[in-house]
C-alpha cells in the first residue's frame, strides 16, 4: 500500500490533494498538522527511549534530576547482564512459547474444524450450536476466572481423569482453547468459499476428511496465519490467568516471570533492563510478521 503511494503521490489523498496544497493556507495547515503528528510519534516512542536510557544509567543517577543525568551520563550495560543473571529468561521464554504455541495450535484445529462443519456440513441442531457458541463471545474472561480456577483445582471430566491441574501447563493451556471468536472468523471465511470448490474435490475422489486437511486448510493458510499470530500475541501477553494458576518459577510465563522478579525489589535500572529484554521477542516478532499482524488486526476488528 505504502509503495503505491510513493510512486503516485496523489493517489488516495482526500483532504490535501496536491493541487490544493498550492494554496498557502492549506499548506500551512498541512505543515502544522504534520508537525503535530510527527511530534506525537516521537512522544509515543519516548517511553521506550526512556526505558533504554534508564537501563544503561548508572545506579547513582537514577534519582537525580534530569539536568544532572544529562551531565553525568555514562553508558553502563552491566544492568542487562545483571537482569539476565537474576531472571531465568530462557526458561520463561520457552514456557511462554510452549503455552502460547499449544493454545494456538489447539485453537486453530478445534475452531477450523468446528467452523468448517458449521459452514459446509451443517451438523444437526445447527441453530442451537450456533447460538451456544455465539453467546460465549459475550462472556468476559474475568467473570469465569474463579470457577475456572476451582475447576482446574478439582479437574475431572464426567468423573474421570481426576487431577489437580494447578501449576501445570494444562491449566494455562486448556481454558485458552475455548475461543468462539476464532470460530466465527473461520466461518465467515469458509462461507465465502464456493461450494463447487469442495464439490469438485469430491468428484475427484477426495474423502471428506482429506478435503478438510488437503484442501480447506491449505486454502485458508493466510487466515490461519493471521489468527495464529493474533492469538499467540494475546496468550503471550496474558497475565491475569497465569497469576492465578501458577506458583512455581519453572512454569512461569515470561510476563508473570518479570512481574515476579520486579516485585522482589530491584533497582530501577535493572528493572528496565529486564523489561527491555522481555520486550525483545515482541519486537522481533513484529518485525517479521508486521504485515500479517496489521492485516489481521484490521480483519478481526472489522469482522466483529
Amino acid at each position: 500500500m505504502a509503495k503505491k503511494k510513493r510512486n503516485i503521490p496523489d493517489d488516495g489523498t482526500y483532504i490535501f490533494p496536491a493541487y490544493e496544497l498550492k494554496d498557502r493556507n492549506n499548506m500551512l495547515i498541512y505543515r502544522i498538522w504534520g508537525a503535530v503528528v510527527f511530534a506525537g510519534a516521537f512522544l509515543t516512542a519516548l517511553p521506550f527511549l526512556w526505558m533504554l536510557i534508564t537501563a544503561v544509567m548508572p545506579t547513582e543517577l537514577i534519582f537525580a534530576p534530569i539536568t544532572k543525568i544529562a551531565a553525568g551520563f555514562k553508558v553502563d550495560f552491566s544492568h542487562f547482564a545483571r537482569a539476565w543473571e537474576i531472571t531465568p529468561f530462557l526458561g520463561y521464554f520457552l514456557n511462554s512459547i510452549l503455552v502460547a504455541g499449544s493454545v494456538v495450535a489447539g485453537q486453530i484445529l478445534i475452531s477450523a474444524m468446528a467452523a468448517y462443519s458449521l459452514s459446509k456440513l451443517r451438523p444437526p441442531m445447527y441453530q442451537v450450536i450456533m447460538a451456544l457458541l455465539l453467546s460465549t463471545i459475550l462472556i468476559p474472561f474475568e467473570t469465569i476466572a474463579i470457577p475456572l480456577y476451582l475447576f482446574m483445582r478439582d479437574f475431572s471430566i464426567a468423573g474421570f481423569f481426576k487431577l489437580n491441574l494447578i501449576n501445570t501447563y494444562w491449566a494455562l493451556i486448556l481454558p485458552g482453547l475455548a475461543n468462539a471468536f476464532n470460530i466465527f472468523i473461520f466461518k465467515s471465511f469458509f462461507d465465502k468459499l464456493p461450494n463447487d470448490f469442495i464439490e469438485a474435490a469430491r468428484v475427484d475422489g477426495y474423502s471428506e476428511i482429506s478435503i478438510f486437511f488437503k484442501i480447506i486448510i491449505p486454502i485458508s493458510r493466510s487466515i490461519i496465519t493471521v489468527i495464529a499470530i493474533l492469538n499467540f500475541v494475546t496468550i503471550w501477553n496474558s497475565f491475569f490467568w497465569p497469576l492465578i494458576v501458577t506458583n512455581e518459577p519453572n512454569i512461569y510465563t515470561l510476563m508473570l516471570g518479570i512481574y515476579k522478579i520486579i516485585e522482589e525489589g530491584q533497582p530501577w535500572n535493572v528493572v528496565m533492563a529486564a523489561v527491555t529484554i522481555s520486550m525483545v521477542p515482541t519486537i522481533v516478532g513484529f518485525a517479521i510478521f508486521q504485515k500479517q499482524v496489521m492485516r489481521g488486526i484490521l480483519f478481526t476488528t472489522l469482522q466483529e
Binding site: 504455541g101 499449544s102 494456538v104 495450535a105 489447539g106 501447563y169
Partner: peptide
C-alpha cells in the same frame, strides 16, 4: 510444527 507444539506439553509433563 503445530502437532509438535501440541504434543510437547505431554512430554514436558
Amino acid at each position: 510444527g503445530l502437532a509438535v507444539m501440541l504434543v510437547f506439553p505431554v512430554i514436558a509433563l
